[in-house]
């Protein structure tokens, strides 16, 4: 018998812990162990990972940014990885999390695109449809306890409408005029909100680019799993374009003044 009331039910019973003082993820796992569990392998943790993806709405559509790093734990393992991926003529997805799962997602999206194209009836999948499809895939996989370990941003422009939305390994979805995954949700999202909210319809391409660049720079300064090499995707009425790799201009002079980092010893 497990005598901890908070463990009696999953989901958590708020009667006993109304304010979540005992976080779900820190509770001991008291579930019965399946003897054969070892013979079925599910993704338990990401291996080669990408970090933040940022995206904003602006006057002409959607702009999205992600760096080119795929980390292996704390090792900066692959430094020329593209984490922004276009799907059809109207959509870009940006991925954080496990890069092999992301490649698998690219693969299934390619199959869906081919299936759509073979009808040759003029109907095309836009960002709304792609996002719904991915949400269903992500939620179905989490329900099999075999998640695709990613946080995805889906941005697009079709029929005169901007679209920007999020989905992750749990199947959680939401939309907003600024979105950021991973570490960027803590570091960049407040900056993006300040710069974009209320200005979605007036920000120019150049302004949007500057906002994303400055956020990528802050992330590079503060996120140990990030890189100063990144790409920007723009999705407008003209279609999708993804830049080549851009290099962040950074300055580390200020580090000299930081106690414990620079020259001073005490």
């Amino acid at each position: 018998m497990d005598h901890f009331p908070t463990n009696w039910g999953r989901p958590r019973n708020d009667m006993f812990d109304a304010y979540g003082t005992h976080p779900i993820h820190q509770r001991p796992d008291n579930r019965p162990k399946d003897t054969f569990a070892d013979s079925v392998q599910h993704t338990q943790q990401p291996i080669v990972t990408g970090t933040s993806v940022l995206a904003i709405k602006y006057k002409d559509g959607i702009m999205m940014a992600a760096d080119n790093l795929a980390s292996y734990g704390s090792l900066a393992r692959f430094k020329d990885v593209q984490r922004l991926h276009s799907v059809g003529k109207y959509t870009v997805i940006g991925a954080g999390g496990d890069m092999s799962d992301f490649q698998y997602i690219q693969h299934i999206l390619e199959e869906v695109q081919i299936a759509e194209g073979t009808h040759q009836d003029g109907h095309e999948l836009g960002p709304v449809e792609i996002h719904e499809y991915l949400s269903q895939v992500m939620y179905a996989r989490r329900s099999k306890m075999d998640p695709l370990w990613n946080s995805l941003l889906i941005g697009g422009f079709k029929d005169g409408k901007r679209f920007l939305s999020y989905v992750d390994l749990l199947g959680t979805t939401y939309s907003a005029s600024t979105l950021a995954t991973g570490f960027g949700a803590y570091i960049a999202q407040p900056l993006l909100r300040k710069a974009v909210e209320g200005y979605e319809d007036v920000l120019t391409t150049e302004q949007a680019q500057n906002i994303l660049e400055s956020c990528m720079r802050v992330l590079f300064y503060r996120d140990a799993r990030s890189l100063d090499k990144y790409q920007i995707a723009t999705i407008t009425a003209e279609g999708v374009s993804i830049t080549g790799s851009l290099k962040l201009q950074t300055s580390w002079d200020f580090a000299e003044g930081i106690r414990g980092y620079g020259a001073q010893t005490q």
Binding site: R10, I24, H25, D29, T43, Q44, R142, P147, L170, T172
Partner: peptide
């Protein structure tokens, strides 16, 4: 090994 938690709480 920590197992995957399929739930979260969204307030």
């Amino acid at each position: 090994m920590s197992s995957f938690n399929p739930y979260t709480e969204n307030g």
